[in-house]
Design a binder for these strands. Structure first.
Lengths: 336, 336
DNA sequence: CGTTCTTGGGTTAACGTTTACTCATAAGCC
DNA sequence: GGCTTATGAGTAAACGTTAACCCAAGAACG
C-alpha cells in the first residue's frame, strides 16, 4: 500500500518521531537527518495519513456544508465560495444536500458530526425548526455558522443578506420605473420570504401605494412555481404592471408566463428578481435583479467558521448582514 | 467532549470489545448486555467515531468527486446524482472543484488521496493530459471512475455520453426542420467537443450538405462564449439558418445574440443546445436540446465506483455510454 | 573542572476503534 | 460423570500518527 512514517524510519534507522518532526517542520532536527528523511519520503512517495493524524490531533481539517439543494445556482455559488475560501487554510468541504427534507437534514448533520468535521455551515430547512438538531451540534461543541436562513429561537452566528432591503430596493425600483400596481411572487413559507415581503410592503407604504393582498402570491422557490404564480396574477383585474419575484428562478418562470400571455416585457409588466444568478443577464430579456452578494456570503461564513475553529473557546454569536445591490437590466427598463 | 465506547464500557463494567460488538451487531452477545449497552449508548448520545474506525478498517466511506466547476448546472447535477446514489451505501462525498485549472486538479487529487478517500470520480481537465496524476492514483490502488471527460491514453473506467450521437441527433434534427446552412458553436478545445463536431460533420455528410469550415466557431463552454461565437457567425454571408451549440449555456448566449440582432427565433435561425439543463425549458424561447442523461451519468458512475470499492481485486475497466435523447422545444419548432 | 545549556534525538503513551484469539462456564450427550 | 460443544465474554495487538517527556553528549562558562 502507501508508505508510512514507519517505513521511512525503519529504512533510515531513526525513530518514527524523528520522521514525524521533520515532516511537520517541528522540533530540533539536524540538517543532515532532515535531508535524509525528506529524500526517502519523496522516494517512497509518502503522503500524510490524515486519518491517523486526525485521530490524535482531534482535527480533521474538514468542514461540513449542509445545503437544501446544490443544483440551485444560489447554493452552488455558496458552495463554491466556501470551498475556495477554506482551501488555503487546508480545509476540505463535505457537501451534504438534504433536498429540503428536514428529516434528511437532521440525519446528515448527525452523520457529519460522526465523521468529526471541525465545523459546520448550515442553510437550514427551517420549516419545523429543529432546535434539537442544533442542541446536538452545540453539545459536541462543534462550531457552526448559519448561512442565508436563520433559525427562529436559536442564538447562533449567522451570515445572510438583508432581506428587508431586498424587498425595499426591488419595490422602490419598480415604483421609480412608473409601476403602480406591483405584485409579488413571495416564494415559499420561510422567514426569508416573509422578510422580503415585509420590505415590499414597507416600500409600498412609504410611497402611499395600496397593498392589495391578492397581489401577493406564493410561488415556491423555483421557476415552475414562478410560472404558476404569475399565471395566477395574470388572472387578476387589473393585472399588475410590475412584479417583484422572490428570486431569479421564480422571475424566469414569471417572465415566461408573461411572454406566453402575449404581454410585452417590460412595457406591460416589469419584473425584478433577486439573487443575480449567473445567467440572469443572458436571458432573452435580461433580468433586473437584486444582487444578494452570494459569493460574499459564502466567503464571510467560511471565514467566520474558520476563525471559530481556530479560537478554542466559544465566542459570542456574530451576525453579518450583506447589503444587497440593485442591478438594473432590461426587464424594468422603460419610461416612467 | 463526546462519549466513547470506553465510557460505555467503564460504566457498565464490560470490555470495550463487547461494546464494539454490540454497536456493530457482530459476534455473540447476550440479549441482556446488548440491551444495557444500547441503552447506555443512547443515554450518552454515543456516536461512532469514524476517524478511529477508519484508521483500523482502512475504509473512510468517503469518496472524492473532482470536478472542473460546480456552478455549472451540468456538474451540479452530476454532484447531486452521485451524492444521492452513494448515500444509501453509507458514503459521503467530498467535492473538489479545480476551476479548470490542471495544477489545482493535481494537488486536489493528491489531497483527497491523503485523506484516504475510498474512491474517486473525476471529470478531468484533460488539457495537458496529466497521466502522472492517474499513475499516482493507481499506485495507491484507489479505485476511480472517469466521468464525462475521457483522458487520452488512459485505460480507465469511464461513464459518459455518446457525443457523436449528440452531434448527429442535433444536426439531423436541424436538417429535418429545414435548415440547410447549419453552423456549429463548437465549445472549447476538448475531446468531447471534437466528438460532437464529428457527429455534426457526419450528419451533414450523410445528407449531402456542405460542411463549411467558417460555420464552425469555437465558443468556450459558457454563455459569454456562445454570445461572442454567435456574433461571429452572424457576420458571415449567408448567415446560418440553424446552429448546433456545444451546450445549453452556449446556446443561451447564442440565442441572445440572435435576438439582439433583430432576427426571429426559430424562424430565421433555429438553435439546438446540448445538456438539457434544468432551466432550458423556462427560457423565453424554450430551447431544443439533446439530453445527455446527466443524472444517469452521475448515478452510473457512482454505482460503478461503489462496485469497484466493494470488490477488492481490481477489475477490468468498464465503459458506459449513455445514449442521448433529443428534446424538441420552441427554438427549432418551425415549418420545414 | 564542575556546572549549566543547547543540540539532536529517543521513549512511552495516547487517540478510539477493530480484529484475531483465548478462555471460562454452562449445556448437551452418551 | 467425563467428554465435547456452544455461548458470552475478555485480552492483546494493531491502525499511523502526535504529544509530552526524557536523556546523552558536547559546548559554554565561570
Amino acid at each position: 500500500m502507501s508508505a508510512t512514517m514507519m517505513d521511512i524510519a525503519r529504512d533510515l534507522k531513526v525513530s518514527v518521531v524523528t520522521v514525524s518532526k521533520v515532516l511537520r517542520n517541528q522540533g530540533r532536527i539536524s540538517e543532515a537527518t532532515r535531508k535524509r528523511v525528506l529524500r526517502r519520503a519523496k522516494q517512497l512517495n509518502y503522503q500524510t495519513n490524515w486519518v491517523a493524524r486526525s485521530l490524535v490531533t482531534q482535527r480533521t481539517y474538514t468542514i461540513g456544508l449542509l445545503l437544501p439543494a446544490m443544483t440551485h445556482p444560489f447554493f452552488a455559488e455558496i458552495a463554491r465560495a466556501v470551498a475556495q475560501t477554506v482551501r488555503p487554510h487546508g480545509y476540505h468541504v463535505i457537501i451534504s444536500c438534504f433536498e429540503e427534507d428536514p428529516e434528511l437534514e437532521a440525519s446528515e448533520a448527525e452523520s457529519l458530526l460522526s465523521r468529526r468535521v471541525d465545523g459546520l455551515i448550515i442553510a437550514s430547512s427551517q420549516l419545523p425548526c429543529r432546535l434539537d438538531l442544533f442542541k446536538q451540534v452545540r453539545e459536541r461543541s462543534v462550531p457552526y455558522v448559519l448561512i442565508d436562513r436563520q433559525v427562529a429561537g436559536l442564538r447562533a452566528s449567522f451570515v445572510g443578506v438583508d432581506n428587508h432591503a431586498i424587498g425595499r430596493l426591488a419595490t422602490e425600483h419598480l415604483i421609480a420605473r412608473g409601476c403602480c400596481r406591483i405584485g409579488h411572487l413571495r416564494g415559499p413559507e420561510v422567514r426569508i420570504a416573509a422578510e422580503r415581503l415585509e420590505g415590499y410592503r414597507q416600500a409600498l407604504a412609504k410611497r402611499g401605494l395600496p397593498a392589495r393582498s391578492c397581489y401577493v402570491v406564493p410561488s415556491g422557490y423555483r421557476d415552475e412555481g414562478g410560472y404558476a404564480g404569475m399565471r395566477q396574477l395574470l388572472g387578476l383585474r387589473p393585472i399588475p404592471d410590475g412584479v417583484f419575484c422572490y428570486n431569479d428562478l421564480v422571475a424566469i418562470g414569471a417572465m415566461k408566463a408573461i411572454l406566453e400571455a402575449g404581454l410585452r416585457l417590460p412595457h406591460d409588466i416589469a419584473v425584478v428578481g433577486a439573487g443575480n444568478v449567473h445567467f440572469s443577464d443572458m436571458l432573452a430579456v435580461p433580468l433586473t435583479t437584486v444582487d444578494q452578494g452570494t459569493r460574499e456570503m459564502g466567503l464571510r461564513a467560511a471565514e467566520l467558521l474558520i476563525e471559530r475553529i481556530a479560537s478554542k473557546r466559544s465566542m459570542r454569536p456574530t451576525r453579518i448582514l450583506i447589503p444587497p445591490k440593485l442591478v438594473e437590466r432590461e426587464s424594468t427598463r422603460r419610461q416612467p
